[in-house]
Computed example of a mutant assay.
Amino acid sequence: MRMLVTRPEPDAQATQERLAALEIEADIAPLMTRQTLDAHLPPPEGFAAVALSSTNALRALSDMVSLDPLRDKPVFAVGDRTAHEARQLGFADVTAADGTLDSLATAIALARPDGPVFYPAGRHLSGDLAHALAPRGLMVVTVPVYEMVARSDLDKDIASDLASGRFGAVLCYSRRTAEIFCDLASDLIAPADRRKLPFLCLSENVAAPLLAHHFSRVLLADHPSEDAMLALALAFAREQTGS
């Protein structure tokens, strides 16, 4: 069983290593690269909390040497992995939501911070946290601090292996990654083969572009988390190999 991991670095390599520990061979083809933006950050004293929907926001703030003024703020992270990263970087008061933007909005609403929430985010947002919290009387100031730049092509060897059907499954973690995969790989894979290639996806939202391009063999993780994706990969590999 050989799988293809499409998420950006450094997460792609981390997933590859965790798959190897499960005795699953995987290649990596990061379809996006993070670039820190030259953002003008508002004064931190004006905020009561920080919202994080991605570890990439923390990495961008670290690049900008802008973490120290925020470390005394309560942090609301989209999931356990982002929460863990925040704690590793010195944030003490960290609440983890359940892996989705809706659950992040709910966690913030229940906590009722007594002032605006600072939301360092990506340039391409999959949801609008400010819009979700406005009806609850909470102000969110969204500042793009990073951009995920799409690859313009696939590595020659990866493209060849996709065209010849050498991957047993493809792992997709974000809707935008799935969209980029469809743009770069659809023409490589014959229509009949698209229906055969399995995709392991973080959620229905991630899977939607694949289905629209007739990649119809899609399996969804039980929970939008890395652990759930690895559990899905292991179950799928065992089913395919009979082990």
Rank of each mutant, 00 (worst) to 15 (best):
P144R: 01
I189R: 13
R175E: 13
K196D: 08
D183V: 09
C172P: 00
F199I: 03
L154K: 05
D187K: 13
M148C: 03
P191K: 13
R194H: 08
L184M: 09
F199E: 01
V145H: 02
F181Y: 07
L171H: 05
E147F: 00
F167H: 10
E147P: 00
S164N: 14
G165E: 15
F167T: 01
D157G: 04
G168L: 11
A178I: 07
P191W: 07
L184F: 06
A192K: 11
D183M: 09
C201E: 07
G165T: 15
S164R: 14
A190P: 00
L197H: 03
L184C: 11
D155L: 06
D155M: 04
I158K: 06
M148L: 11
D193C: 08
V170T: 08
P191R: 10
D183K: 07
A178V: 03
Y173K: 04
A169C: 12
A150E: 14
Y173R: 07
A159R: 10
L162A: 08
K156Q: 14
P191I: 14
S160F: 12
S152L: 13
L202E: 09
R175K: 13
P144D: 01
D183L: 07
A185D: 11
S174W: 00
R176N: 09
D183P: 00
E147R: 08
F167S: 02
R194K: 12
R194N: 08
A159Y: 14
A185S: 13
D157M: 10
A163P: 05
V149Q: 13
D161V: 09
I189G: 08
L202W: 05
E147G: 00
L202Y: 04
E179H: 06
I189H: 08
D153M: 11
K156C: 08
S174T: 02
S152G: 13
D153T: 15
F167E: 04
F181M: 12
R176D: 10
A159W: 12
P198R: 04
A163Y: 06
R176C: 04
Y173M: 13
D183N: 10
Y146Q: 03
S186K: 09
R195D: 10
S164Y: 04
S160T: 14
S152C: 11
G168P: 07
A159L: 13
V143L: 05
C201K: 09
A159P: 04
E147M: 03
F181I: 08
A178S: 15
L171C: 14
I158W: 07
D183W: 02
L200S: 07
A163W: 06
R194Q: 07
G168T: 14
G168H: 13
V170F: 08
C201P: 01
S164M: 11
